[in-house]
Nucleic acid binder design. Structure first.
Lengths: 146, 146
DNA sequence: AGAAAACATATCAGATAAGTAGGATATAAG
DNA sequence: CTTATATCCTACTTATCTGATATGTTTTCT
């Protein structure tokens, strides 16, 4: 019941991208360096993000990736759904679904969890993460200027 | 990011047990039949539940399992924690934890999800599930008596 | 022309999940 | 006192997923 590294790394890389954006495409090489993630692995992740319509790419020298929409219009749910599939706390096998007892558990537990989590993921945007990141980063740097 | 069959089957089996309780121990054989779960697998699951202090067992003929406490005093969280470990939506590797960006994501996302889910699991009791089950089961049976 | 980037597959080792198998031990019932 | 019915215990198996790594091909700016 965990979010895998694919989702975590992808999300982190996107925040990094958005935080370091200046209009021009950002290379995965630079993201990989800053975030200490294998370039090869990041390429796979961004392939998925591109196919999901979250980023756009330009090939060739001085190419790279850009967000397809503004950070405030990209929800965390979109991102994680692209990388991990839609969130659902359980994955029932056919036999379980027929069980009448299962219905009770589904209603009181799984459905409620799914709803709460999905609502939160839907609410949180990439922009919020970027803002929070910049803020905490600045706090960290302040100590050098006191 | 799923609850595994161990947790799902265990929870279902416990609700079944509680719903069919009459004071005397209930054998896993009967639970396995009603719930269509492999007896061998259930035995492993109930071994864990016993060690976690959720059920007590009596061996031998006409032996079986009983809830250690009343159903209203057993939270779903206790059960799932015994079978799956404490709920936490992510499991970070050491490198990630040091990342400053990670902190932002942790605060705005993972911590909030963990808190919401754990609160729900803590609130829901075995008794609630049993009640819901009995109710929906009765509704299903009513059609035969109209 | 050459460097730097995305893009595309294939491969691989390790971990985990989901069960199976086979017996050992305990105890109530007949 | 024997037999059936339980729990209890541990090892094994099989399949799938994860987290990469490796090796190139294609594209485009300089």
């Amino acid at each position: 019941m965990k979010i895998s590294t694919k989702g975590r790394y992808g999300l982190r890389a996107l925040v990094d991208m958005a935080a370091n954006a200046e209009g021009k495409p950002i290379s995965l090489t630079s993201v990989a360096k800053r975030q200490n993630i294998s370039l090869n692995y990041l390429e796979q992740v961004f392939g998925t993000l591109r196919k999901a319509g979250i980023v756009i790419s330009t090939k060739g020298s001085s190419g790279g990736y850009l967000l397809k929409y503004e950070a405030k219009d990209i929800s965390v749910r979109q991102i994680l759904e692209a990388l991990e599939g839609a969130f659902s706390i359980v994955d029932l096998n056919p036999m379980e679904m027929q069980d009448p007892l299962q219905q009770a558990i589904q209603t009181l537990l799984w459905d409620e969890i799914d709803e709460k989590v999905n609502t939160l993921l839907e609410t949180r945007t990439l922009e919020q993460l970027v803002d929070e990141y910049k803020q905490t980063k600045d706090q960290g740097n302040q100590m050098f200027y006191i």
